[in-house]
Design a protein around this nucleic acid. Structure first.
Lengths: 204, 204
DNA sequence: GGTTTAGAACCAACCGGTCGGCACTATCCG
DNA sequence: CGGATAGTGCCGACCGGTTGGTTCTAAACC
């Protein structure tokens, strides 16, 4: 693997676990076995590295988790959400999932102190939410969801729920939290679609 | 105000905005106009300061936001949740609310790197969730909520939602996110209680 | 031969933390 | 009553180490 890629990968991992400001360039370079001069040959600063790492991971996440589920027009809207939750759960169950959502972590850390990075994350979050919103709207068009559904509000609600669940999964060090919250979301989506609920969910 | 209290207050504010690791003792002392030796007279380390600040704020939050609402036995279970949401919204609308939830922020920052602080926050989160759980159970006993309600799961769901909403409110720099998500929660609670929904919420 | 890498020395600024000492007050003892 | 003692609150100077970032030479590699 190229030095540049080694830096990017170890930087992503270290920033995920320790946070951006709590990770020094020396930490990254030592873990990646790359010299400092080499780092500054490939990147112009620690800040620019953050943009590159973030951009790479955003594309990666969208391609793995959202593209094949929420954006997958071969599935019906309900199946898309199911597939999406499956992928979120797979991430949450993995070793990296114990560290929380890398984007949520970074957003928490820098939103109040680094406006340019905040804007990148904000745009990315909006893109994810809008993908869900479109999924709802399509379902409203085909009758899977009732036509009066507040699609945007629901999409934002689901996104916030997932972020909160990842935070608690990290704080409690317990993957069960994610399972429970995603289970609740599955039940709610079925509710909104008018389908019967799963047996573990309460009926109003 | 005593030097000690000045340190505690400015430390709480700075940690809230910049994070614990991204806030230096010098930053705190300069903002509080207190000298370093004076700091080390009152606190034994930056780490210990974190525990003191956190403990103070946790007590404060519980007394202001949960005690008079979720734990208020003069109100019915539904009214307690309403009162709780009112208080959460008031915090979210305030200037400090723009910085997200101080506990959620800290949990995000230290959960993976500082086990003792993580444990304090984890216990605190559990206490908040259990307060809601008890509220649900009381309502189930008096018939306000149906008896088969999964109280613990719902309490965890609400807590995660609030945390996620605060994170997005911070990332988007938009208080509306919180309003919308809390509005959704209000609707869900009414659903679970069997009462009629508010008009902006979709009916299953 | 241009791209990539290694190595090392170096910088100013900053980090958490320590040092001895200086006022002020309250108490105790003769 | 007066002087020694002890505790409190505070100060400026200073410590070793780390931070992000720079600059150089020289060797690999395609």
């Amino acid at each position: 693997m190229s030095s540049r890629q080694k830096i990017l990968d170890t930087a992503a991992a270290l920033i995920h676990t320790r946070g951006f400001y709590h990770t020094s360039i020396r930490d990254i370079l030592q873990a990646a076995s790359v010299t400092k001069s080499n780092f500054y040959y490939h990147f112009e600063s620690k800040e620019q590295l953050a943009f590159v790492v973030l951009g790479e991971r955003m594309r990666q996440f969208y391609a793995i988790a959202i593209g094949p589920s929420i954006d997958n027009h071969e599935l019906g809207p309900l199946e898309r959400f199911e597939a999406f939750f499956d992928r979120i759960l797979a991430i949450g169950r993995s070793e990296a999932g114990e560290l929380g959502c890398p984007f949520g972590n970074l957003a928490q850390e820098i939103s109040a102190v680094h406006e340019p990075l905040r804007r990148v994350l904000s745009t990315f979050f909006e893109a994810c939410t809008e993908a869900m919103e479109r999924c709802f709207e399509e379902g409203m068009g085909t009758g899977v969801f009732p036509p009066e559904l507040p699609a945007k509000q629901l999409a934002g609600f689901i996104f916030a729920q997932i972020q909160g669940a990842f935070l608690l999964r990290k704080t409690y060090k317990d993957p069960e939290v994610l399972e429970s919250n995603i289970g609740m979301l599955r039940g709610l989506i079925r509710d909104w679609s008018g389908r019967p609920r799963s047996p573990t969910m309460p009926s109003p």
